[in-house]
Design a protein around this nucleic acid. Structure first.
Lengths: 147, 147
DNA sequence: CTATTGTCCACTAATTTTATAGACAATATA
DNA sequence: TATATTGTCTATAAAATTAGTGGACAATAG
């Protein structure tokens, strides 16, 4: 019942980008260092986020990556779905065809309730919410990044 | 973000037992057949449920297994926790020590919210609830089992 | 031209999941 | 008390997924 490192790292990387929103692009190398994620692995996590148009990238000197939209417009659900696939505890919730018992399965009802509850949280939390929580937790810390 | 077959099979097996609550013990072999779970694998799923005192078992002829308490007293959360461990999307929710950033990690707050939402559903659903839903879905079906 | 920065694809290691197999223990009942 | 019936324990293995590495390549600012 765990989220994988890809989903977790993606969330941290996106929060990192949100904290730098509106400034110059952020280097993968810097996210890698700040978030303790190997540069090579981080690439694989960023790539689908670019494909999903949540991140835009610029190559070459003074390049880097940045959020493609304001933090207020990006939900956690958007991020998690890109890296983890559909948010549901079992496949039959989204795709009843995978199990012949689905139509008469009471257990499946619970998995559906569970999926709804998870969506409720992830769909109502934006990167902006995380930015605000982060700034409460570490006031002043951001100056380090602005030098 | 999926629950494993152990958690799913355990839920189905427990619902099967709940549907037979108050009658003679149920054979592992019969659950295996009805729920399409290999007998050998089912054993491994039942065993921790016995250790957790959710199921009691009787060996020998006319033996079998049965719920240790009424379906109304068994929450889905009890079952899932036995087979899947703590219900949380990441380990740092339950055990902040595993990650040095935990105290100042805004992402962790979301995982905590998510864990709370999941608990909310699983803690408020009992086997009796599932029994009732199942009987609505398949009225009459149980006669097959009572012969 | 060249240093800088991101992109793509293949591969490998580690871990977890999903089982299978065999020997064993308890007990009802004939 | 012999025997068929039923659950129990431990080891092993196949398959899938997760997590991570590595090398060559592409774009671009200055």
């Amino acid at each position: 019942m765990k989220i994988s490192t890809k989903g977790r790292y993606a969330t941290r990387a996106m929060l990192d980008l949100a904290l730098h929103y509106g400034k110059t692009p952020v280097l993968l190398k810097d996210i890698s260092a700040r978030q303790d994620i190997s540069l090579r692995y981080l690439e694989q996590i960023i790539s689908p986020l670019i494909a999903a148009k949540l991140i835009k990238s610029t190559r070459g000197p003074r390049g880097g990556i940045a959020l493609a939209k304001p933090p207020r417009k990006i939900k956690l659900l958007d991020i998690i779905q890109v890296l983890e696939g559909p948010v549901a505890p079992v496949e039959c919730v989204e795709n009843p065809g995978v199990c012949t018992r689905a139509p008469s399965c009471a257990a499946r009802d619970v998995w559906t309730d569970l999926a709804r509850a998870m969506h409720g949280v992830l769909d109502s939390t934006t990167l902006q919410d995380l930015v605000e929580r982060q700034r409460e937790k570490e006031p002043g810390k951001e100056l380090l990044y602005q030098i």
